[in-house]
């Protein structure tokens, strides 16, 4: 059993896949920031932002619904925004009688709730497309370019590398637990406390395996000259087309923002 399915990268030979990771990371953040800065109920702005992310999705060759579908994962959190339906002052839109109580949904509240849900769904699509079109090592390179501290990037890289190794081990542990609890089914001794304890043991053994592996990795690094300093290859230069893509992308999100603010 292999945990390779964890990797969200989808190899394609698309326009988006060929864009420099630095450009993609910056533009994804700019897109999300623009979306966040759009005022509530700025419908024209939301339409433009959606068109933009749909266009990017098409340029990714992952299929237009790839990100749209996956972004619905954000729905459970939308519960946290439900109260704005009732607390935003405005014209009543719907009365929900609840016995002696009645909840009043205002039109403004509905607009605000829909805005939050939409913004969240749109922002998530940007993250999904970024992760699906960019191998993680390239994202690490982009982070180095954006001056994320080297030690932190080094820890990110090691974490990503060993995530698959330890996830494999976690899957094996879970399978072993299932095999044993099937044998114990008749005993009926599986209280919540017992399940929690078993899970804790498994987490502890993952930690121990990780600890011991980190010692062996450290030896392997030492053997090849590691001296505690984090050193890497220099950043590759950015192609002119990628610089142009960065400027065009920033101009597009900037003009959506400006347009919405002027018109709205």
């Amino acid at each position: 059993m292999h945990a390779n399915f964890i990797d969200p990268f989808h190899a394609r030979d698309s326009l988006l896949h060929h864009v420099d990771p630095r450009v993609k990371l910056v533009l994804a953040v700019a897109f999300i920031l623009t979306t966040a800065l759009l005022p509530p109920a700025a419908w024209p702005g939301y339409i433009l932002v959606f068109a933009l992310i749909l266009a990017v999705a098409i340029a990714s060759a992952l299929g237009p619904f790839f990100a749209i579908k996956r972004a619905f994962l954000v729905l459970p959190f939308v519960l946290a925004a439900l109260p704005v339906l009732f607390t935003t002052p405005g014209e009543p839109w719907l009365h929900v009688p609840l016995g002696r109580w009645a909840l009043t949904i205002t039109a403004a509240g509905l607009a605000r709730f829909a805005s939050i849900a939409l913004k969240s769904w749109l922002s998530m699509q940007a993250g999904i497309l970024l992760a699906a079109s960019t191998p993680f090592p390239q994202l690490l390179m982009a982070m180095r370019a954006l001056r994320v501290p080297r030690l932190l990037v080094g820890v990110f890289g090691l974490m990503w590398r060993y995530l698959f190794v330890l996830a494999d081990e976690a899957l094996r542990l879970m399978r072993a637990r299932e095999a044993r609890s099937a044998a114990l089914a008749g005993a009926g001794g599986s209280s919540v406390l017992w399940r929690a304890k078993v899970t804790g043991y498994m987490a502890g053994s993952l930690f121990l395996r990780g600890y011991e592996r980190s010692e062996r990795i450290y030896d392997a690094m030492l053997a090849r000259g590691y001296d505690g300093e984090v050193r890497t290859l220099p950043l590759p230069p950015m192609a002119r087309s990628d610089k142009a893509a960065l400027l065009v992308g920033l101009a597009i999100v900037g003009s959506i923002l400006a347009l919405e603010i002027w018109v709205g």
């Binding site: 060993y162 392997a220 001296d227 290859l233």
Partner: peptide
């Protein structure tokens, strides 16, 4: 002295093959 460990998952600690082979020469 080039030391190759038993478990290649210990030896190969970089995110890509290229970076791993470059590690020694970089240092």
């Amino acid at each position: 002295v080039g030391l190759v460990f038993q478990d290649p998952d210990d030896q190969l600690f970089s995110p890509t093959v290229y970076e791993d082979v470059a590690f020694g020469p970089i240092y």
